[in-house]
Design a protein around this nucleic acid. Sequence first.
DNA 1: ATTTTTAATGATAATTATTATTAAGTGAAT
DNA 2: ATTCACTTAATAATAATTATCATTAAAAAT
Lengths: 146, 146
Amino acid sequence: MESRIDRIKKQLSGASYKLTPQREATVRVLLENEEDHLSAEDVFLLVREKSPDIGLATVYRTLELLNELNVVDKIQFGDGVSRYDLRQEGAAHFHHHLVCIECGAVDEIQEDLLEDVEAIVEKKWNFIIKDHRLTFHGICHRCQDK
Amino acid sequence: MESRIDRIKKQLSGASYKLTPQREATVRVLLENEEDHLSAEDVFLLVREKSPDIGLATVYRTLELLNELNVVDKIQFGDGVSRYDLRQEGAAHFHHHLVCIECGAVDEIQEDLLEDVEAIVEKKWNFIIKDHRLTFHGICHRCQDK
DNA sequence: ATTTTTAATGATAATTATTATTAAGTGAAT
DNA sequence: ATTCACTTAATAATAATTATCATTAAAAAT
Ligand SMILES: [Mn+2]
Ligand SMILES: [Mn+2]
Ligand SMILES: [Zn+2]
Ligand SMILES: [Zn+2]
């Protein structure tokens, strides 16, 4: 955890940004809720528990900054808010998601699975792929059991 | 074109909705701009050229309705607005997109390409896939030539 | 044909997410 | 100590979407 923060600090300073207390608090919330898909408002409320004086706009700015540095990925599942997802360290591409249309749960797929598809797309459409977003909509294993 | 509208009309009446003049005007705009990815505002401005009295809320309601009936798919590319995309007739799944990070162009991939990936996901994650969203971000062929 | 009911619309207000502005604070470098 | 770039909190502004509601059009019942 601490080492993870250290590495993010290095990423920031490498781009000549500082890990301010507010930014650190935001990163900690993201790390402590890595399995979730928090909106800016969610992050704000959680950060505020430990750092009551932080402003919402600061959280937005921090998330924006972390997104630029590829520390977090920003994603929209279609419910009107952007959500922020820590990228696995060293991952070249964003991971995939399973969105349940019954219960709304969002599960993750860390495997890439797209190598073959991307090879075809790069060749046939002459498109240089830098990243991707893949979401499956359907029925999660929990809702199938019901 | 007319037959396409007829079939959409049948889909509407099958769900006991009517193809009102406003709805028809909206559908026509979508058909005439099938290759684009229009926002609600875009659609509104185009519909208004022919039907000057239509209200913005009606366009939103119509797009929402068409989305429910799977006539259009709603997608967010991350620029803050929802865009509406006609689904190919008979297509089981939404098609894919290539978003250029240089020029912003959005190209389409109508081939599915995901059969194998989906078979793995359904089995390994025990998830019943109903639909998907796949977007590649990268450099389009036009920007590579520059 | 007339009345009654229902569905759909347009105008506009309200809400919500996000971004921009401003004035003040901070801390390293001179 | 002073300067300077960066960062912050508070607040205002903007933009997309949704909700409300009076009005109209269409359908159903009489
Ligand atoms: Mn995730
Ligand atoms: Mn498309
Ligand atoms: Zn579920
Ligand atoms: Zn391009």
